[in-house]
Amino acid sequence: MAKIVVVTSGKGGVGKTTTSAAIGAGLAKAGHRTVLVDFDVGLRNLDLIMGCERRVVYDFINVIHEEASLNQALIRDKRVDNLFILAASQTRDKDALTEEGVERVLTELSKDFDYIICDSPAGIERGALLAMYYADEAIIVTNPEVSSVRDSDRVLGILASKTRRAANGDPPVREQLLLTRYSPQRVQKGEMLSVEDVKEILAIDLLGVIPESQAVLNASNAGVPVILEEDSDAGQAYQDSVARFLGEDRPHRFLQLEKKGLFGRLFGG
């Protein structure tokens, strides 16, 4: 049986899709059969980030409405073995997602995959609720600023009460925090919340801290999951996060301000 992992945040633009792509690619590289499912119906982005937008024929909604089979809709990633993408529909809206349909597709995927990564839309409406309903694990993507943290807190409350596990009285969804767009420099200046601040408010385990990085934007534009950019700081931070997700104990990096070189001394504060 596959583990169903929802990548969620409440707030938009914090890096859910980037994270889904990176974690999914990382798990697949570690040898686990992984499928990425885009729940953001109407605003599909995951295929862009994964660089497969030109290969989408059938999507998640087609499968839900039994207009196509899963095999027809699943897109195999060309770079990483064991990695598949189920794209969202651009022409429909979230009402096209039905509870039974989602459950049926996830059950079917569970037979073939080790991990199902559900890329949640922003907000706490239907699409987001359905993305998290069947989850076994949740990765809460949060930026180090107050509104993002508050939205994440709200989502954690929903995860604790409105998921299948909560409804069945099963052990709760395992929740882990991924802090993205972290800039130690801005934390030092007091413009951003620190890792400790966010951990204290949300009170969940820290999966990783992804530094603010040009590499993320470059990778998105190129349609490459940033975790495959192995020399970049963000790519390495995602690799560490995947290793931790799989149970490895790794120290957190990129939390401290880097020592300034000559350039930094000349132009830095």
Partner: peptide, 26 residues
Amino acid sequence: QPVRSGQQIYARGGDLVVMSAVSPGA
């Protein structure tokens, strides 16, 4: 458990003890 943003807890008829945090918005 933490009482998270958007949640409401009411102890009818007695005291309420929260062992963890009550978040902003809760």
